[in-house]
């Protein structure tokens, strides 16, 4: 499972690096169980993906209760954590994403670049 994921991620990043212009978004959201906070975060990310990034986005939601090993691998301390794997640079957004200004700024920068 783990090898699959990493190889997938590596492949994705390689692809992203070579074909910069496709601007594929890879997002991973780590949550801890089905708490209110987790649900809020998942909801927000889904909305974002659908509304802003269209089909250009791969979202993976991981429950660290189910896969605690992944929490260590990905250096998860706070939950929920959203990791923007691609495009580079990697960014982590911690919290229930109630405040998405920072996130939008990060993502918007890319979209603007693309449009420009």
């Amino acid at each position: 499972m783990r090898t699959n994921k990493t190889s997938h991620a590596t492949r994705a990043s390689e692809k992203a690096l070579t074909t910069r212009l496709t601007d594929k978004y890879v997002l991973r959201l780590f949550v801890a169980g089905a708490t209110a906070r987790s649900r809020q975060a998942i909801l927000r990310v889904r909305q974002l993906c659908e509304a802003e990034l269209k089909d250009n986005c791969t979202l993976e939601v991981i429950d660290i209760y189910q896969q605690p090993g992944l929490a260590r691998e990905n250096q998860i301390v706070a939950t929920p954590t959203l990791i923007k794997e691609l495009p580079r640079p990697i960014r982590r957004f911690i919290g229930n994403l109630a405040n998405t200004d920072g996130l939008f700024a990060e993502l918007a920068l890319i979209t603007k670049d693309q449009t420009a």
Partner: peptide, 20 residues
């Protein structure tokens, strides 16, 4: 790399510790 965007807890740490 880190930006705060709302409420969070350190459940990640707990899970890792517990797992270890």
């Amino acid at each position: 790399e880190v930006q705060e965007s709302g409420e969070y807890d350190l459940e990640g740490l707990f899970v890792r510790l517990n797992y270890a």
